[in-house]
Write a protein that binds this DNA or RNA. Structure first.
Length: 401
DNA sequence: TCTGGGGTCCTAGGACCC
DNA sequence: TCTGGGGTCCTAGGACCC
């Protein structure tokens, strides 16, 4: 049976939400109406553009580019810092409104949702009508705007919501693929990034249509599994379901760009301690255990190296993960100045599914220590409670909650 | 000139077993 | 002595997304 799918995409999410919050707090200027961006902290070497207003976009400012460049393109650019607590608040408000229409909602990211409306369209109404209603209600009741894509699968709904912005509703049904989607440059196709483009261009593929009408086998031969996927996308084929049940994470990571390049392994280790604490804390919040620990570094020359290792027993234990992470760091470290350090845990499993008998006494004891620390964190906030190793840490580093 | 952080998925090559 | 595949697991690295 044909699916009825909506894709909801918040226009300039971080900037719009910041604007709404500022107006609510008495600000008179709507930063959506001036050349403005949301940017990272340049002093912390995180100076990239996270979101831009339309006027900022018009002068060629791009998401992800250094603020330094953005300022050159627009000398009177206004720059604001992001705030994820605010973003979560508005993201949740949107989600709660969408729940009035269907409970089959996939939160694809903080500012994007897929809605499976199959069997949820009231008698006498159409999917398109509902899309327009949501569009109108979000603007009136929440103060920001969204684009909606209306289609029979997720890919087409997503492509549709990306058409003209802001505050628009677009359909992309099967009989509209040729007129609405095929004319677009191949770079606009979902999952086609800048690394695949040169190879596609070399094959004479410039538009989505060029890819769609190519022989499928030829594309598979050139790109493997990835080729099959983008060829199907170009033809509007996507059988994936809206994943509306809360999905457990497959990995948890935390990384940080340091305020300057570190060459002192002891200082790097101190940062590692804080990163492991955050990662293992989140692991325990999810009631999961990890089997693989991964440490990643980025050198001053932007070269990325990583080492990972599978542990004998899955764990959520800070001390065990830290021990492993330290070993991996020492194996990686070759005295080249380090710009970024990151820790990830992978191969996660539900804690309930692991038999208690697997634990020996030492890990039982450490588990109890972790539990006490977690309770303190919940009571007093994440950064108030740290292990000794973190106390000497560079005061300039700002960690996340 | 300067270049974030959080994810998922895929691939290549080596180790190891049958 | 020299020689085979297939399958699985593991690690490192890289693509893509928002």
């Amino acid at each position: 049976m044909e699916k009825q799918i909506l894709h909801v995409d918040v226009n300039n999410a971080f900037l719009s939400w910041t604007a709404v919050e500022m107006l609510k707090n008495g600000e008179t200027i709507d930063i959506r109406t001036i050349p403005a961006i949301i940017g990272g902290d340049e002093a912390q070497r995180k100076g990239v553009v996270l979101a831009k207003s339309n006027l900022a976009k018009q002068v060629g400012i791009q998401t992800g580019e250094p603020i330094f460049f953005a300022r050159k393109k627009c000398p009177n650019l206004q720059i604001y810092q992001g705030n994820f607590t605010v973003y979560r608040k508005y993201s949740n408000a949107l989600y709660n409104m969408l729940l009035e229409y269907t409970d089959k909602i996939e939160r694809f990211s903080i500012d994007e949702c897929f809605m499976d409306m199959t069997n949820y369209i009231p008698k006498g109404r159409t999917l398109l009508e509902i899309a327009y209603e949501i569009n109108k209600r979000v603007k009136e009741e929440l103060g920001f705007t969204v684009n909606l894509g209306v289609a029979h699968n997720k890919l087409l709904a997503k492509m549709a919501s990306d058409f003209e912005k802001p505050n628009k509703v677009h359909t992309l049904f099967e009989n509209e693929i040729e007129t609405k989607m095929w004319k677009l440059p191949i770079s606009e196709l979902f999952m086609v990034g800048k690394r695949s483009l040169p190879k596609l261009y070399k094959m004479g593929i410039k538009t989505i249509k060029d890819l769609a009408i190519k022989n499928e086998e030829e594309i598979i031969k050139a790109f493997g599994k990835y080729g099959k996927m983008i060829w199907e996308y170009a033809n509007g084929i996507d059988n994936s379901e809206v994943i509306y049940e809360e999905e457990k994470p497959k990995g948890i990571g935390n990384s940080i760009t340091l305020p300057y390049d570190y060459s002192d392994i002891e200082k790097i280790e101190e940062v590692l301690v804080a990163l492991v604490e955050q990662v293992s804390y989140r692991l325990r919040c999810n009631k999961m255990l990890a089997e693989v620990v991964n440490v990643q570094i980025k050198t001053n020359e932007f070269k990325v190296y990583s080492h990972q290792r599978k542990m004998l027993i899955p764990t959520d234990n800070t001390k065990i993960i830290l021990q492993e992470a330290k070993k991996l760091l020492h194996e990686l470290y070759n005295k080249v100045p380090i710009r970024l350090i990151g820790v990830r845990v992978d191969k996660l499993t539900d804690k309930e599914q692991i038999q208690l008998s697997l634990f020996d006494n030492t890990s039982k004891k450490q588990t109890q220590i972790d539990k006490v620390v977690d309770e303190l964190k919940e009571k007093y906030g994440q950064d108030k409670v740290t292990r000794a190793g973190k106390m000497n840490i560079d005061k300039n580093i700002k960690f996340k909650d």
